[in-house]
Design a protein around this nucleic acid. Structure first.
Lengths: 207, 207
DNA sequence: GTCTATAAGCCGATAGAC
DNA sequence: GTCTATCGGCTTATAGAC
């Protein structure tokens, strides 16, 4: 097995995630990616053909995790459990895939010019599904009469912010990086806002 | 008074806001700004000296509104009223200064490389003040025991998202742009999450 | 003050030796 | 498969005519 190939591709992808997250697509130089990866620049082109290709790979790497985060909405469950699980997973993505998450956010901010139509469609379909699910809860009287779309926007924003605006969060909290406890506190706060805001009755704690 | 000068500067600033918001600093070409402004490119340099200068002017234009949005925290008031006013103003900024707001968000995402230290310090000081204010409410038992920093992060994120991720919001809602009613619904949703989430007792409606 | 025409430099991409 | 050395295009910025 060409383990050198795998190792180099991985080094480049990792370096690219960091550079793209830090500076954005246009401001990132492939030479900087090469330096960060500890490899000569032509290797970047050898493995990925072009800067845009490399960028797309970083971008696509976050779509699957994002889609999977909606899994709780795809199976029956109490609203409180579904929303809690969703928020926790979204926060975990912001922590564990911070760079790709930021690249994704930047891409969306600029109108998703590099995201394939399939991916866009998948993400939209999942979003529509989640919103419909919340609307059903409202109709069934399981949660308060809240606008499902705006609720989703708030959850997305509140969870994504820990990846996207890490600089602001570091500056305000005075911590260079957040600890596990900080992420836990973030998740708890968002879960609290959402569950209380929707006036969701907690299911009997059976576990 | 040189009204041509004022008019041209304004045309360029407006065009620049749109271009920078759409593509980001590095991906924006000064020639595109000139075309959008309906003026020859050298005019851009004549009035603003450099691309970076022009960018900084767009960026700085949003700082004052953002600082003023925190005004409710700077005078005594019931938590419900303060938070409601703050959220409404932040949503209004996302609507009325959508482009500059997006430019600001992109700048923060990339570590604020163009923001002056004074501005950064001002924004931080105001943030610290707001958070301390919320902490006092908690200590006085006026609101539930919630983490003030994370509450602020959620409010920032949920309100900013209407400027930053307008593409996503358009795609999901199927509307090219949001109406006044949509912004009203957004504000109501966020206010609801925050007030209920903090278990704030509403003050008697005196107005 | 305005604009055409051009300079200067940077960066993505590759040819070709090893 | 790897890397040095270089090209070519694109974009910021300006010189200089009007």
């Amino acid at each position: 097995m060409s383990s050198i190939r795998e190792r180099n591709k991985d080094l480049i992808l990792r370096a690219a995630s960091e550079e793209f997250a830090e500076k954005g697509f246009a401001a990132t130089k492939t030479s900087d990616i090469a330096v960060r990866a500890g490899l000569p620049k032509p290797n970047v082109y050898y493995y990925f053909k072009s800067k845009e290709n490399l960028y797309r790979e970083v971008l696509e790497s976050i779509v699957e995790p994002l889609l999977e985060a909606s899994a709780p909405f795809n199976q029956p469950g109490h609203p409180a459990d579904v929303l809690r699980a969703y928020i926790r997973t979204k926060i975990r993505i912001s922590r564990d895939h911070a760079n790709a998450s930021k690249v994704f956010a930047s891409e969306i901010m600029h109108g998703a010019p590099h995201l394939s139509c399939e991916r866009t469609a998948q993400l939209n379909a999942q979003a529509a599904h989640n919103i419909a699910c919340i609307q059903r809860w409202v109709d069934q009287g399981l949660i308060a009469d809240i606008d499902p779309s705006h609720l989703m926007f708030s959850i997305w924003a509140a969870t994504q912010t820990y990846a996207d605006f890490d600089w602001q969060i570091s500056t305000v909290t005075g911590k260079a990086s957040l600890s596990d406890d900080d992420y836990e506190a973030a998740a708890e706060t968002i879960i609290r806002l959402v569950l209380k805001g929707c006036e969701i009755d907690e299911p009997a704690a059976a576990d």
